[in-house]
């Protein structure tokens, strides 16, 4: 569950520093989510840096039983995020890996065990960081549409992310939230699962997209890009006219850009730091 007490002593007059763990999927597939996260963190009064040396949280190896590689990659991460008050990721899955599992990986390591635990304690999923740590009451943005929300598994069950994104969405002008009845059921992504067991994954995502369509919503939101790529890809293949965004994009007022899988991405606006 979310640790509401700040693990780091942050002095009153010194601004809070956040290292953004952008996650590999956001880095590669949808950089605008990274910019949305930066925007939200800055609005909350944080100073944000993006360590260059970050790559991946190690989950692909960890979940494949390859602990040696997972440890090597995670050690790099521990190093990269040294010195920040907090580490924030726009993903419950990666934040869960850092909070819950990286400390397990180094439990017997005489040098890195404490550092891994410390990193875990200061790492948060984006929406839970904004609400639980920064006390952001709600977001200020606009989006015209009826949205439904999928609760990604790791964020929900490892980190207790459920109410935080909904609370933030309440402040979005023009947005109506219609709850998805099976919002807590896995979408079938599961990292490498979706390519190792494509048929089962397909069955799961088909049930998910038909439940999404049944809500009548025109937009799907979630807090993990992996799940979103899966569901958006299925809806696109099925020809369903439902758009998909990462919740951070809507909260940061970036819902006017192309949805996931839509053409027309133009990143030039972000390059000079003039967005939002």
């Amino acid at each position: 569950m979310v640790d509401k007490n700040s693990p780091t002593i942050v002095s009153e007059n010194k601004p809070i520093t956040v290292g953004l763990f952008v996650t590999c999927l956001v880095d590669l597939f949808r950089p605008r989510i990274g910019f949305a996260a930066v925007e939200l963190l800055e609005r909350a009064g944080c100073q944000v840096a993006v360590p260059k040396a970050q790559t991946c949280c190690g989950q692909p190896a960890y979940n494949s039983g390859d602990n040696a590689h997972a440890r090597a990659v995670a050690a790099n991460l521990i190093d990269a995020f040294d010195g920040f008050d907090y580490v924030v990721a726009p993903s419950g899955s990666c934040a869960g890996m850092i909070r819950e599992h990286i400390p397990e990986l180094f439990a017997d390591d005489p040098i890195l065990a404490d550092k891994a635990v410390a990193l875990g304690r200061k790492t948060h999923e984006l929406t839970s960081f904004l609400v639980d740590v920064m006390g952001m009451p709600t977001a200020v943005a606009a989006y015209q549409g009826t949205v439904t929300y999928h609760d990604s598994c790791s964020g929900l069950r490892e980190l207790g992310v459920k109410d935080q994104p909904r609370r933030l969405l309440k402040g979005v002008d023009g947005l109506t939230l219609t709850e998805l009845p099976s919002s807590e059921v896995c979408c079938g992504f599961g990292g490498t699962f979706c390519v190792k067991y494509p048929e089962i994954s397909n069955k799961m995502v088909s049930e998910k997209t038909s439940a999404i369509a049944d809500t009548g919503a025109d937009t799907l939101l979630a807090g993990d890009l992996g799940c979103l790529l899966n569901m958006a890809g299925k809806m696109s293949r099925e020809g369903r006219p439902i758009r998909a965004f990462h919740v951070a994009e809507i909260l940061a007022g970036m819902g006017d850009g192309p949805a996931i899988g839509e053409a027309g991405e133009d990143l030039s606006a972000f390059a000079d730091g003039q967005e939002g």
């Binding site: 605008r32 899966n230 890809g233």
Partner: peptide, 16 residues
């Protein structure tokens, strides 16, 4: 085989 794959933006967040 089962779903479309969203195309990456062409640039990484890190480069931007």
């Amino acid at each position: 085989d089962h779903r479309d794959m969203a195309a990456p933006a062409g640039k990484t967040f890190q480069d931007m």
